[in-house]
Amino acid sequence: MTTVDEPRAYPAAIPERLDPDPQLAELRNQPMIRVRLPYGEPAWLATRYDDVKIVLGDPRFSRAAATGRDEPRLRPLIPPPGNIMSLDPPEHSRLRRLVTKAFTVRRIERLRPRVQRLADGLIDDMLVAGGPADLVEAFALPLPVAVICELLGVPFEDRGEFRYWSDAFLSTTRYTPEEVGACALAMREYTAGLIARRRAEPREDLITALVQARDEQDRLSEDEMLSLIQAILVAGHETTASQIPNFVYVLLNHPAQLSALDDVPRAVEELMRFVPLGLGAGIPRYATEDVELGGVLVRAGEPVLPAVTSANRDESVFTDPARLDLRREEASHVGFGHGAHHCLGAPLARMELQVAIGMLFGRLPGLRLSDGEAGIDWKTGLSTRGPERMMITWD
């Protein structure tokens, strides 16, 4: 067991583009250290695959225990209590069951033809307009937004508003705390309006199903319903909209791997492992008892940050992990998390990414960056990475 040292800043510098923080490889080879993020109390940092899975999946590490604590985070505002990401089973399980049916693999596969038609239409529009095109605005953003809007029952024409709110929710420095708070209030009022409309005019969508679970079965509170819809709306489009151009960028920088796109599902899994979406570690968990982990003793009440990006590059689990290998056959990545909080929308994200990558490289021969790095504007001031603008062209 090691002694507790003074926490060090993490990350020391924001990694550029999609490169993982170089500190992580060093930290995987030593006992866990304590770190301090821009906001909140110090925390232990779990960097190894096995340790990260324990933090994410072992009930001795709690999300609910963060309530009332100054939890470590990249963003200034503390997540509000009572949302699904702040709960442990059985309360977490109760809410999760209400929406699980909408995201089963079987149901998502039934959506695949619809998503393919949407993707086809967006690519048709790009072909008619001709290159160059901004991949983000022309394809990567409207595809997952259209899908999550249809699933939830949210008007697609409102996408500009909730895109702005999503950026505010993910803001590290782009918006002030006051602006983030104003966006949170505006999104809450908007969501309440959607709920009111579905109470008056029920439809075959997820918001209607949640309203019925609230009004007819008393299975969740009004606040829980509001928080759940907001979380699905943000998470349901933001990560996929970022990963589509991220994946395209990585593939264009690894042209030798393009021949392996004959197996798109496997390629997407390797890209999920390889591409770091978040800037820092994941959401902290608090130890509910003393636990030996990563060569240190984590005391009850201490937070641990699971560094998913580091776990996906663990040399003890993945052969040559810094190399992209679209035919890799090794342990599962933790890009969608692990345990009770494993990403609810993982089947949907996988399917959308498979459709997007398969169709972009299938229908746009010679797909390439039109202006090289000069044609890419990378996100800044947000906790997720990816291009805000990415100019592409094709033959």
Results as ranks from 00 to 15, higher is better:
Leu258Trp: 09
Glu270Tyr: 03
Asp290Glu: 14
Arg188Pro: 00
Glu179Gln: 14
Ala182Trp: 01
Leu258Asn: 11
Tyr286Asp: 11
Arg273Asn: 07
Leu210Val: 02
Leu194Tyr: 04
Phe274Asn: 06
Ala182Glu: 12
Val308Ile: 15
Pro303Asp: 03
Glu292Val: 08
Ala241Tyr: 12
Leu277Pro: 00
Val250Gln: 10
Thr240Gln: 10
Gln217Phe: 09
Ser227Trp: 11
Met272Thr: 14
Val304Thr: 05
Gly181Phe: 00
Val304Trp: 05
Arg273Lys: 09
Ile207Arg: 03
Ala213Thr: 00
Glu238Tyr: 07
Glu289Thr: 15
Gly236Leu: 09
Tyr190His: 07
Leu277Gln: 02
Leu293Glu: 04
Arg197Ile: 05
Pro284Tyr: 03
Ala200Thr: 10
Ala196Trp: 04
Thr172Val: 14
Glu302Asp: 11
Ala196His: 08
Asn246Gly: 09
Ser227Ala: 15
Thr191Gln: 03
Arg219Val: 02
Leu261Asp: 12
Pro245Asn: 06
Glu292Thr: 14
Glu222Tyr: 14
Gly294Ala: 07
Leu258Asp: 14
Glu292Ile: 03
Leu226Val: 15
Gly278Thr: 14
Tyr164Val: 09
Arg219Thr: 11
Thr191Gly: 00
Ala213Phe: 07
Thr176Pro: 02
Leu277Thr: 05
Val304Asp: 10
Ile195Ala: 04
Arg174His: 03
Met225Tyr: 08
Ile195Asn: 08
Tyr286Met: 07
Ala260Tyr: 13
Leu279Ile: 15
Cys183Val: 02
Ala281Asn: 06
Leu251Asp: 11
Cys183Asp: 08
Asn246Val: 03
Ala186Pro: 02
Leu233Glu: 01
Arg198Met: 06
Asp262Leu: 12
Ser259Glu: 15
